[in-house]
Amino acid sequence: MEKEEKVMIVLLMMVLLSLSVAYTTFYQGGTQIQELSTSSKPGEKVYLEGTVVSERFTNTGGHLLIDVEHSYGTTKVFVSKDKGAQEISSVISENSKVHVTGEVQEYQGGLEVVVQDISDVKVL
């Protein structure tokens, strides 16, 4: 084999390795967000659509708690003060139809959906 051929093979191998690393790091096509259900587990990213039953701020911290009635019952949605609690509270009210995306977490023995960004709560 010529020197140029060896260099070319090494470069092609490096390109293939780089592409495979990028693919496994950035490709998220296999991780679709599922609808919240009775089988949802803490740590999963889910969505739910439903009607706001109540909304209130926590006694300490200024975080927003929203109770959303949907196809599987009523679920608490937690919005941290630094994730847009005030802004979300200003656009929703009781009986608002909402689409919420967030992470399932366990709190005091029950499951709740924790909003990660203000754009994760949409009024329908």
Results as ranks from 00 to 15, higher is better:
117 D>I: 04
68 V>S: 13
88 I>R: 01
30 G>P: 06
27 Y>E: 14
81 K>C: 07
2 E>D: 15
69 E>W: 01
41 K>F: 01
124 L>R: 09
80 S>Y: 09
23 Y>C: 02
19 L>M: 13
61 G>N: 13
7 V>Y: 07
32 Q>I: 13
118 I>D: 15
47 Y>Q: 12
122 K>P: 01
78 F>G: 08
113 V>Y: 11
50 G>T: 08
49 E>D: 11
78 F>W: 07
3 K>S: 10
90 S>E: 09
3 K>H: 01
50 G>E: 15
28 Q>S: 08
36 L>P: 00
110 G>H: 02
27 Y>H: 06
124 L>N: 13
104 V>L: 09
111 L>V: 12
85 A>Y: 03
57 F>K: 04
20 S>I: 03
32 Q>R: 14
123 V>L: 12
34 Q>T: 03
65 L>A: 06
2 E>K: 00
15 V>P: 00
4 E>R: 00
10 V>K: 00
89 S>V: 08
113 V>L: 10
52 V>G: 01
2 E>Y: 00
10 V>I: 13
119 S>W: 03
29 G>H: 13
60 T>A: 14
108 Q>W: 06
79 V>T: 09
89 S>R: 09
79 V>Q: 06
32 Q>W: 07
81 K>W: 05
71 S>D: 12
111 L>Q: 08
93 S>C: 08
98 V>P: 11
17 L>R: 06
3 K>G: 01
25 T>V: 03
120 D>F: 11
33 I>M: 12
63 H>C: 08
57 F>N: 03
10 V>M: 00
78 F>N: 05
43 G>T: 01
74 T>M: 07
97 K>S: 12
88 I>T: 05
42 P>M: 02
7 V>K: 03
3 K>E: 00
114 V>R: 09
85 A>N: 14
23 Y>P: 08
78 F>H: 11
36 L>G: 07
102 G>Q: 06
105 Q>P: 01
87 E>P: 12
38 T>K: 08
20 S>V: 02
108 Q>K: 15
98 V>S: 11
107 Y>Q: 05
62 G>S: 14
31 T>H: 07
2 E>L: 00
94 E>F: 07
14 M>H: 02
43 G>L: 01
36 L>N: 08
84 G>V: 09
85 A>V: 02
110 G>I: 05
87 E>R: 03
80 S>N: 09
115 V>A: 06
21 V>K: 04
93 S>G: 15
111 L>G: 06
31 T>V: 07
33 I>K: 10
121 V>S: 08
56 R>S: 15
121 V>M: 09
94 E>A: 10
85 A>Q: 06
41 K>I: 02
58 T>M: 10
27 Y>I: 01
87 E>A: 14
62 G>D: 13
26 F>Y: 12
65 L>E: 15
117 D>G: 04
78 F>M: 14
92 I>L: 10
86 Q>F: 07
118 I>R: 04
88 I>E: 05
